[in-house]
């Protein structure tokens, strides 16, 4: 899983450098577009994802300790965080589209929809990984610690990728 994390990290790092390059070519356009984003929603979504990352870390810790009931509770909390994040992201997109800001509006919004869209795709894949973790934890016949920790590692990657996307799209100027 760490190999996948490094490959994904390198791929996204390339996206972030390219974004910064384009931002430096047209800073006024990018900043005028950035001003239309809802920074508060970005912060709320960041805290939701950080909290979900915390709960999946607790899930791993409880699972290592043999407390599978608490581990299951924590992975369900993680899953709820993922769904909440996705719901807020879709709401945010609907607001932006309602204001007339779509993928083709300008370079900033192309990056905005591309980066947040590809991240949302990772949330979906991460949710499937969480389902596998739930499946593992829900029966004493399974509970393979390696599978549980692999799912958790993927979810943490989804979390840190968002942390970088948030800083670039919502904060950097």
């Amino acid at each position: 899983m760490w190999v996948l994390v490094m490959i994904e990290g390198l791929t996204f790092a390339a996206y972030f450098v390219v974004y910064t390059y384009f931002y430096r070519q047209s800073p006024d356009l990018f900043l005028a577009s950035q001003a239309h984003l809802d920074l508060t929603l970005g912060v709320v979504n960041t805290i939701i994802l950080l909290t979900s990352s915390w709960s999946i870390a607790r899930c791993v810790e409880r699972s290592r300790a043999g407390d599978y009931k608490a581990a299951l509770r924590n992975v369900l909390l993680t899953m709820a965080g993922g769904f909440l994040f996705a719901g807020i992201k879709l709401y945010e997109w609907s607001v932006e589209i309602g204001r007339g800001f779509t993928f083709t509006t300008n370079t900033f919004f192309s990056f905005y929809y591309f980066l947040t869209g590809i991240h949302l795709l990772h949330i979906i894949v991460g949710s499937i990984a969480l389902f596998v973790v739930i499946h593992q934890l829900s029966s004493p016949a399974r509970r393979a610690q390696e599978i549980i920790e692999t799912g958790a590692t993927y979810w943490h990657m989804v979390d840190f990728l968002w942390v970088i996307i948030f800083a670039l799209l919502y904060v950097m100027r």
């Binding site: 999946i56 979390d159 942390v163 970088i164």
Partner: peptide, 21 residues
């Protein structure tokens, strides 16, 4: 602000990697 955003982001990613992962 740009340097600050990049710096604090890297600190956050490192905390996630070291503590959560």
């Amino acid at each position: 602000v740009a340097a600050g955003a990049i710096a604090i982001t890297v600190v956050k990613v490192r905390v996630i990697i070291m503590e959560f992962m």
